[in-house]
Design a binder for these strands. Structure first.
Length: 154
DNA sequence: GCCAACGTTGGC
DNA sequence: GCCAACGTTGGC
């Protein structure tokens, strides 16, 4: 099993929105970055645990935990000309972008703030605190996952 | 809203 | 295939 961190803007879709969905499950669409896409397509597996990270908001940080319940399949929004995520260069025969389904597991009592994460000695290698932190899907190793989860549940 | 970082595009 | 221009991201 692997661990991941998915970013979202809570104004658009938050951990509370995920918890409120039917079956507490939602597809994670709109990924339009090749490196993130490759993670989704090749490495994100059913049962993997996913931190839900809130960005561009008042309380920036890790808000909760979810689980992958469906592995990569074509992101339908790329075929919809009305969609913000429409990609005219993609086709159903040869889809460029994929998404996975995630299911809510828990919401942390408080958002584990980015500021706090940056002070954690265990987390020096996580993409979040290094350069290139702009990926919307990033891997988290087991040690980092444990440390973050423990800090988030305090 | 600013701005630095970084990914993508497109002309050559 | 280089690289400048441009667009987007995301913390502050």
């Amino acid at each position: 099993m692997q661990y991941w961190l998915f970013k979202t803007e809570p104004d658009a879709f938050s951990i509370d929105d995920l918890a409120a969905r039917p079956n507490q499950t939602e597809h994670w669409d709109g990924i339009r970055n090749y490196q993130a896409r490759n993670f989704l397509r090749d490495q994100v597996k059913q049962g993997d645990k996913v931190f839900i990270y809130h960005s561009s908001c008042k309380d920036v940080g890790i808000a909760g935990l979810a689980e992958v319940v469906k592995e990569a399949y074509p992101d339908h929004t790329q075929f919809d000309p009305e969609s913000h995520y429409y990609d005219p260069k993609s086709s159903p025969e040869n889809p460029r972008w994929v998404m996975v389904d995630v299911k809510f597991i828990e919401k942390f009592p408080d958002v584990l703030a980015l500021k706090k994460i940056k002070t954690m000695p265990e987390i020096s290698e996580v993409g979040l605190v290094k350069k290139g932190h702009r990926l919307s899907i990033m891997p988290v190793n087991e040690q980092e996952f444990s440390a973050l989860l423990a800090a988030a549940r305090v």
